[in-house]
Design a protein around this nucleic acid. Structure first.
Lengths: 160, 160
DNA sequence: GCTATAACTTCAATATATGAAGTTACTATC
DNA sequence: GATAGTAACTTCATATATTGAAGTTATAGC
């Protein structure tokens, strides 16, 4: 993914996808949500090479989804923590997990359960409509494109 | 991402991430949810090269999230459609879009609105606990790892 | 002094993606 | 009936990114 037209995409979904739809980015974020904070743990628990991990952590920090915090000064040692922007990616990871549990699971108990602190239940969160509170899935919705975005897409079609 | 230990990962979230956390996979899926069905449209609307698109479509078909359907026999022409397994990825894309709208948007109206067919509202779906129906976010939950998964992770830590 | 640890960086080899162009088998138009 | 266009790809040389292994730096503890 290197085209400038994508980097400047009008579509916010495409921009998010461009940032995070990278195998290692998501693996790192998954680990962060499991509570992993340090370089070497992230490295061995995800299997990423140190060079790539280092590069991705810098990128994630640059985006603003995580921050480095020194936990000791001499020698300088850091841990990585999710920011509010990063924590807000929770639904993405949870959706991926739910899909994996449903379609890739072995039928047994999933390896990670999500406990709702409020009620104590082990749950698979699902999506609802904030207006009418009904559950929402793909077939309950349809996309409506803004005129500007529609125009951009027509231009892209024309170019081919 | 090529390590066999990841391909055989116990964690269903990691397995899902491994399949879809690829920039082009997600861009293609996003397009499919917008209703795009044909090779050349997918190619110009995502910006992926034909070679990569061809490879990714084969992979997506192999996974089972989309299927090829002939819409004309001579010459053979196909369109690509999401399967039930594919449509079930909707929350992943919607979560990415919601995040993008919130953190990457320009403050204006987002380029794509999601209309809930049932009530007609343009909405940003959110996650709720299926047990108590309260909204759920990162700080409302905690992960609980299965013993087997915990064991696998300890082994990975040890190896470093 | 010796060993261990954390957080990286470096490097050569390998793998993957890119853009541009080409291919195949038609249909539609002049 | 020749020419142009279209759809769905494939091919290829080049460019870019990733990998595994090893090295580096700064320090603590014995």
């Amino acid at each position: 993914m290197s085209r400038s037209n994508l980097a400047e995409n009008t579509c916010t979904a495409a921009r998010a996808v461009e940032l995070f739809a990278d195998a290692w980015m998501m693996m790192i974020l998954r680990e962060m949500f499991l509570g992993t904070r340090r370089f070497d743990d992230l490295q061995c628990l995800t299997g990423v090479s140190p060079a790539t991990l280092s590069q991705r952590l810098k990128k994630l920090e640059h985006i603003g989804v995580l921050c480095r915090e020194a936990y000791q000064a001499h020698p300088p040692r850091y841990e990585y923590r999710l920011t509010a922007m990063g924590r807000d990616l929770w639904p993405v990871i949870v959706s991926m997990k739910a899909w994996g549990d449903r379609w890739l699971g072995s039928g047994e108990e999933p390896p990670v359960a999500i406990i709702h602190k409020h009620c104590g239940a082990a749950v698979t969160p699902h999506m609802v409509c904030p207006a009418c509170h009904e559950p929402m899935e793909a077939h309950d919705s349809e996309p409506r494109l803004s005129p500007a975005f529609e125009h951009e897409r027509q231009a892209a079609r024309g170019q081919s």
